[in-house]
């Protein structure tokens, strides 16, 4: 290239200084929420505050009523709660929690891999692959999770295949989620504007590379919240672990219940733990969505 540059027209210089000012004024990247919703005005904020107040009071009343009912039926008696002071109780529940997390993580990974392959079939330019993909997606979405679990618990072992308990729960849960994952992925791919592909084609990139470098990374950003929502369902589906005797949180909770005869108390604690897990996942989803908002 030549050393001497063509002189830069005045309009270029203007453009430069203009944006320098703009950049300083907008230090925070635009998030999806900022882009989609107007910030609430004073009236809206007041109304939101009132609604929040009413909801919170209602919730407090409800909780009080429940506690009262428990008191009347004797569920608050010390014998139903003292075992929570024992370390072994928490150790046992913790082990169960670990099992839940392991099963959910394994199922999540499996569901993503299977869903990805199914999505590739769905968007294939070959009609046969598309048909096969559609068939599998509809099948996995239509059949209840529990049926898949019984299949892996009762039918698969008969064919001589020996699976560890975690696979007996994670695989069917994953299959059941994979169809949804495939459709979520596909909607993300379809949401990427066609111009992105055309620009890449015009640079001489080939379809496989365009998918990997341009389309999929953008699709993935669009759908991360939906994928995490599906992970919440996967976590909840692992509560079927008791069917295959895999020691997850639910299964261990059941053991404790029969040991201490304290159904309400243990289910209460267990429910809180599940809510915490899924709340955490939702927080991650919101954070991720906000962080990737700039690319929309």
């Amino acid at each position: 290239m030549s050393e001497k540059k063509p002189e830069i027209p005045a309009s270029f210089e203007n453009a430069r200084t203009k944006t320098a000012g703009k950049a300083a004024a907008a230090p925070k990247p635009l998030s999806i929420r900022d882009a989609l919703y107007e910030p609430p005005g004073p009236k809206t904020r007041k109304r939101t505050a009132i609604a929040t107040g009413i909801s919170l009071s209602a919730l407090a009343v409800l909780i009080l009523l429940v506690i009262r009912q428990f008191y009347i039926t004797g569920q608050l008696a010390p014998k139903y709660w003292t075992f929570f002071a024992r370390k072994t109780t928490w150790k046992f529940l913790g082990k169960g929690l670990l099992g839940t997390l392991e099963a959910a993580a394994l199922a999540g990974v499996l569901a993503f891999v299977m869903g990805f392959l199914m999505m590739l079939g769905r968007i294939s330019r070959r009609r046969i692959l598309r048909a096969v993909g559609t068939g599998i997606v509809e099948f996995t979405r239509g059949v209840p999770t529990l049926l898949f679990i019984y299949f892996f618990f009762l039918v698969v072992p008969r064919s001589g295949i020996k699976l560890a308990a975690i696979w007996k729960i994670a695989t069917p849960v994953a299959i059941s989620a994979a169809g949804v994952v495939a459709e979520v992925l596909r909607s993300g791919v379809n949401a990427v504007p066609k111009g992105q592909t055309e620009a890449a084609l015009s640079l001489g990139m080939q379809h496989g590379k365009i998918f990997r470098k341009i389309v999929f990374p953008q699709a993935f950003r669009y759908i991360t919240p939906a994928l995490i929502a599906e992970l919440v369902i996967v976590v909840k589906d692992t509560t079927f672990s008791y069917v295959v005797n895999f020691p997850d949180l639910m299964q261990n909770a059941k053991v404790l219940i029969s040991n201490y005869d304290a159904l309400v108390q243990i289910y209460f604690v267990t429910a809180v733990v599940y809510i915490l897990i899924n709340y955490l996942l939702n927080r991650i989803s919101v954070t991720v969505a906000d962080r990737t908002g700039t690319t929309l």
């Binding site: 504007p193 111009g195 992105q196 890449a200 015009s202 640079l203 990139m205 470098k213 953008q218 690319t295």
Partner: peptide, 28 residues
């Protein structure tokens, strides 16, 4: 693809790669 790479194209709607930086758009 090879022949396309020898012809530049500029679109009405720019079509810059939305997830890449300006520099990466030019180097990709």
């Amino acid at each position: 693809s090879a022949l396309r790479s020898e012809i530049g194209m500029v679109f009405q709607s720019f079509n810059l790669f939305a997830h890449k930086t300006i520099l990466d758009n030019v180097t990709i």
